[in-house]
Simulated assay, not measured.
Amino acid sequence: MKHLVSFKNIQKTYDGLRPVVKDLNLDIDEGEFVTLLGPSGSGKTTSLMMLAGFETPTQGEIFLNDKPLHNLPPHKRNIGMVFQNYALFPHMTIEQNLAFPLAVRKINSVDKKQKVSRALDMVKLTDFAKRYPAQLSGGQQQRVALARALVFEPKLVLMDEPLGALDKQLREHMQLEIKHLHQQLGLTVVYVTHDQSEALTMSDRVAVFNDGVIQQIDTPTAIYEAPNKSFVAQFIGENNTLLGTFVYRDEQYAVARLADGSLIRAVPVAHSQPGDQVALCIRPERVLVGNAGSTVITARIQEYIYLGDHVRMITEIAGQPNFMVKLPISHMNHSWTVGSSISLSWSPEHIRALDAAPY
């Protein structure tokens, strides 16, 4: 498959000293939905803005369809953009807002009318064509912004936190709308967010950024189930970390010792030597109460958090607090109380021995 976008050895610094983006190499294929995910200041938005043409790389080159972009201004890159603040023209009606990018590209009036009509229909706003942005809800304005980015039929659409201003229910609805449009139109989408669930829901691949570097890029399933660094495990979803000391590696698993002497087998990811500290990471939903898993350990209950359909039970293991277990309400045992000791268990393939570097 042909790469539509390629970042090659990209560096970006604003002060000549501290790089905001460090040695970025990333290929994006035609038709892919790739999300750049990370905390504030991690370099994800700067990377998107360099692709859009609003920022210039300090070093390296960005290619679109195998052509370098460094001499091409933003309006000539033929890229659709959707921002969090909508950026609609308040003095124009909705159909005039959609017609604007077509007028800039000197599309004739007949084609312009057809394209605007098709874009309005695509986002289900045909009845709102004569209204002004101030007469629409936030969700409707975001649909207009989306339609405006798509009306000139770009091959590539960039989205920077486009759903950040919407409430939870509307945001989840718009996530599916954008994903369906991506599939129907065969778009290539590069999407920036700090919302992990948004990234997991919508993407073909997720690039997790931290400190200007992609820590891991993979499918949502692999990012969640098989993080390769402690930062990724902690940043994506909920995660438990037990700090231990690497002892040895058998044919399949790494073996680490906790402070109380318990030996834990885990999938080896970090390149550890005996005596190194490792972070043993496991998702709360992979932890079982009782002895059903092959690794069994004693825990002390610290707290219950009731969340309607499930309970989060916070426990302490080997002197380490805040080890979380997710339990369906039907699995609760009302004889358990704060301070009680219980057995927890899991399968070793669900716990990963990662680097113990600070994050």
Rank of each mutant, 00 (worst) to 15 (best):
Ser42Glu: 15
Gly43Trp: 14
Gly43Val: 15
Lys44Glu: 15
Thr45Asn: 13
Thr46Phe: 14
Thr46Leu: 14
Ser47Lys: 15
Leu48Pro: 04
Met50Trp: 07
Leu51Ser: 12
Leu51Asn: 10
Leu51His: 11
Ala52Tyr: 01
Gly53Phe: 04
Gly53Ser: 07
Gly53Cys: 09
Phe54Trp: 02
Phe54His: 01
Glu55Cys: 12
Glu55Met: 13
Glu55Tyr: 09
Glu55Pro: 07
Thr56Ala: 11
Thr56Trp: 01
Thr58Pro: 03
Gln59Val: 13
Gly60Cys: 14
Ile62His: 09
Leu64Thr: 05
Leu64Tyr: 04
Asn65Gln: 11
Asp66Gln: 14
Asp66Arg: 09
Pro68Cys: 13
Leu69Lys: 03
Leu69Asp: 05
Leu69Ile: 14
Leu69Met: 13
His70Gly: 05
Asn71Lys: 11
Asn71Gln: 14
Pro73Leu: 12
Pro74Cys: 10
His75Trp: 08
His75Ile: 10
Lys76Thr: 05
Arg77Asp: 08
Arg77Ala: 08
Ile79Met: 06
Gly80Met: 07
Gly80Arg: 05
Met81Lys: 01
Val82Ile: 14
Val82Gln: 06
Gln84Thr: 11
Gln84Ser: 11
Asn85Val: 02
Asn85Lys: 02
Asn85Tyr: 04
Tyr86Gln: 00
Tyr86Asn: 00
Tyr86His: 01
Tyr86Gly: 01
Ala87Gln: 01
Ala87Glu: 01
Ala87Ile: 06
Leu88Pro: 00
Phe89Ile: 06
Phe89Glu: 04
Pro90Thr: 04
Pro90Asp: 08
His91Arg: 03
His91Ser: 05
Met92Leu: 15
Met92His: 02
Met92Ile: 04
Met92Cys: 04
Met92Ser: 03
Ile94Tyr: 00
Ile94Asn: 00
Ile94Pro: 00
Glu95Lys: 11
Glu95Tyr: 02
Gln96Ala: 09
Asn97Tyr: 02
Leu98Val: 02
Phe100Asp: 02
Phe100Lys: 07
Pro101Cys: 07
Pro101His: 08
Pro101Phe: 03
Leu102Tyr: 03
Leu102Gln: 09
Ala103Pro: 00
Arg105Ala: 10
Arg105Glu: 13
Arg105Ser: 10
Lys106Leu: 09
Lys106Arg: 15
Lys106Tyr: 03
Ile107Arg: 11
Asn108Gly: 08
Asn108Glu: 15
Ser109Gln: 10
Ser109Met: 04
Ser109His: 05
Ser109Ile: 10
Val110Asp: 12
Val110Phe: 01
Lys112Ile: 03
Lys112Glu: 11
Lys112Gly: 00
Lys113Met: 06
Lys113Thr: 09
Lys113Gln: 13
Gln114Lys: 10
Gln114Met: 06
Lys115Ile: 03
Val116Ala: 07
Val116Asp: 02
Val116Asn: 04
Ser117Glu: 12
Ser117Trp: 00
Ser117Arg: 02
Arg118Val: 05
Arg118Glu: 15
Arg118Gly: 08
Ala119Phe: 00
Leu120Ala: 06
Leu120Tyr: 01
Leu120Gln: 03
Asp121Gln: 13
Asp121Glu: 15
Asp121Phe: 00
Asp121His: 05
Met122Leu: 15
Met122Gly: 11
Met122Asp: 14
Met122Glu: 13
Met122Cys: 11
Val123Asp: 12
Val123Glu: 14
Thr126Leu: 08
Asp127Val: 06
Phe128Ser: 12
Tyr132Ser: 05
Tyr132Thr: 03
Pro133His: 06
Pro133Met: 13
Ala134Phe: 10
Ala134Leu: 08
Ala134Gln: 12
Gln135Cys: 07
Leu136Glu: 05
